[in-house]
């Protein structure tokens, strides 16, 4: 009958772990866990909790200022406002490719940076732009003026009834 100490270490009967190596390993693991947690906490900081940029919500005027069939370009704010029979709508003039401001052309819009072309209603005609120009949400402020939200997209064809 072999002694228990003579049993060869195997996968089923691994060599005993000493208290010292167990404690060392535990210390190391807890050190790594602490550093990892600290790192995650440190890296959380650069992600802004609130958008510190300018509030991109603009009062554009009263509905009467937008006559039927006319188009008003807000170059600084990067959108156009138009009115047709169904109402008023706004389309962003920031290219969906890499964010350049698009220029008005006879057929619609054209991006100077990488040559994307868009139709009047924002549909992509040519170039690398992955998406149509977004239509923007419009609401009416308490003083009766229309407000355009540049960061809020609505499905194309959404009109603000007036």
């Amino acid at each position: 009958m072999p002694d228990a100490n003579d049993v060869k270490p195997s996968r089923l009967a691994p060599p005993p772990v000493t208290r010292r190596s167990f404690l060392s390993l535990s210390a190391l693991v807890s050190f790594l866990a602490a550093m990892g947690t600290a790192l995650a906490g440190v890296l959380r900081l650069p992600k802004p909790t609130v958008e510190p940029g300018p509030v991109r919500r603009y009062k554009v005027g009263h509905p009467e200022q937008f006559p039927l069939g006319a188009e008003t370009l807000f170059a600084e704010e990067n959108f156009v406002v138009r009115r047709d029979a169904a109402g008023i709508y706004a389309i962003a003039t920031t290219c969906t490719h890499l964010g350049c401001a698009v220029a008005r052309t006879s057929e619609g819009f054209a991006c100077p940076c990488h040559g994307s072309k868009f139709a009047d209603n924002g549909r992509v005609l040519a170039g690398p732009a992955p998406r149509p120009l977004p239509w923007l949400e419009i609401s009416r402020a308490a003083d009766g003026q229309l407000v355009v939200y540049v960061d809020r997209e609505v499905p194309p064809g959404t009109h603000f009834p007036v």
């Binding site: 650069p46 992600k47 802004p48 958008e51 510190p52 940029g53 300018p54 991109r56 960061d151």
Partner: peptide
């Protein structure tokens, strides 16, 4: 979107 926010600190290039 996360990468852009981390890089710019905002939606557009500005102070941040």
């Amino acid at each position: 979107g996360l990468q852009k926010r981390l890089l710019l600190g905002a939606q557009t290039v500005g102070e941040d």
